[in-house]
Nucleic acid binder design. Structure first.
Lengths: 221, 221
DNA sequence: CCAAAAGTTAAACACTTGTTTGAAACATAC
DNA sequence: GTATGTTTCAAACAAGTGTTTAACTTTTGG
């Protein structure tokens, strides 16, 4: 039970970077242990299997993130009788930015992992995360309902996932987007700036009271 | 040069299903050739490599999709002097739905592939697709500008990618979402219905004229 | 201080991967 | 019909995979 052993942490550090950069299946334990400068067998010793390592990497981010998010949501809950969608989405900002303070480019790595986890085989990570953090999502949903009580649960559900898609997709690929933004518009942007652009966009979509209707294609009357 | 040989098509058919279901790296050529009922070596014979096979699978969808999309955009362009964002986004509907007529669950498979391609190692498919179909994206962007000329190019760029994220993310994971929708709200939904819910959501976001501003967190004044 | 537990290590294991090979089967053209 | 080019096939290949083993070192608690 020595906590002096840093090899577990070293493996996690190396794994999260490589997983984010190259994906789960495309990253071998040998690459991870080489980068971490530990023995190959230590992954199986400390984590049991590669699959468990993936979950552990994921979990380390989620725990930090959800803890902060819960704090933010609680604060919003008690400070404001009435809340706006903008405010609810705003609770995501601090927890995300905070990750950048914990480790370099943290929010970027986290979102890349989320994006990859999402596309993962059979969605086994998604299931794992949903089980483990469903209460956080439930609370977030409750806040959204408070902000927009007229929305039906079904409409709410879909719009929530529309927003999730934008969030993960944008932040997971933000590096490429940042490059384009710089070269095409001479505008360097930070992750925080992207989020601050994204939230009004999503708020407007979420607040829209347009009913889902058939979209006319160009040819029809 | 016999075109009677169907093995190329059989490989493509098997590959696109397995790639969509399990991912690129997680699908072996042996699984593909077994399902296609062709010899293992035929993949390398007809496509050269697994990487080229992935591109070929992707390309078959993209060609059908972009061709239809160009038609839709051209029609909108000549029929309407002034266009709305809703209409521009509407040009995506038919090309997507049409894929379902070509093969069973086509749009679903296509979107799953898109989702996976997006998260792909080093984004080599994304690069490949951007090179090959950049003119289609350019035309789509031009239409969006026509619908919303006051938007700065940079703002436009970001909102376009916000929409892309929602689209791909939602449709790539639509099966899981459909399941939840059915069990939680007793509402069976089709891909088309999802799109018709998504487009007004995105239109509202895109049309929003709110400037990107600092989002207040719950604690601040 | 020393036995037991925890951690590390190099080597091997069993298996799967994409790709190549060279012969066989087939098609086409002269 | 034979020659030519194309396609299929079973088999093998080299390389890489996650995991296990058993010997070794280090840390820990009595």
């Amino acid at each position: 039970m020595s906590n002096k052993s840093q090899t577990k942490a070293k493996v996690l550090d190396a794994a999260e970077l490589l997983f984010a950069e190259h994906g789960f299946a495309e990253t071998s334990l040998r690459e991870i242990t080489a980068r971490a400068e530990v023995n190959l067998a230590s992954v199986n010793y400390h984590f049991g299997s590669k699959k468990s390592l993936i979950e552990a990497v994921f979990d380390r981010f989620m725990e930090s993130f959800t803890n902060q998010l819960i704090t933010e949501m609680a604060e919003l809950d008690k400070n404001s009788e009435q809340v706006t969608v903008n405010q609810v989405l705003g609770t995501l900002v601090k927890p995300l930015i905070y990750i950048d303070e914990i480790r370099p480019n943290g929010s970027s790595v986290f979102m890349k992992l989320l994006g990859r986890a999402y596309a993962e085989t059979q969605g086994h990570i998604r299931r794992f995360a949903m089980e483990r953090y469903s209460h956080v999502l439930a609370r977030f949903t409750r806040l959204l309902h408070k902000a927009s009580p007229s929305l039906s649960p079904a409409e709410m559900f879909w719009r929530l996932h529309f927003m999730l898609g934008s969030f993960i997709f944008t932040l997971a690929g933000h590096e490429a987007l940042q490059e384009i933004s710089e070269s095409d518009f001479n505008q360097a942007v930070t992750v925080e700036q992207i989020i601050n652009r994204l939230i009004p966009f999503l708020s407007a979509g979420f607040d829209s009271n347009e009913a889902p209707a058939k979209i006319m294609s160009a040819g029809e009357a």
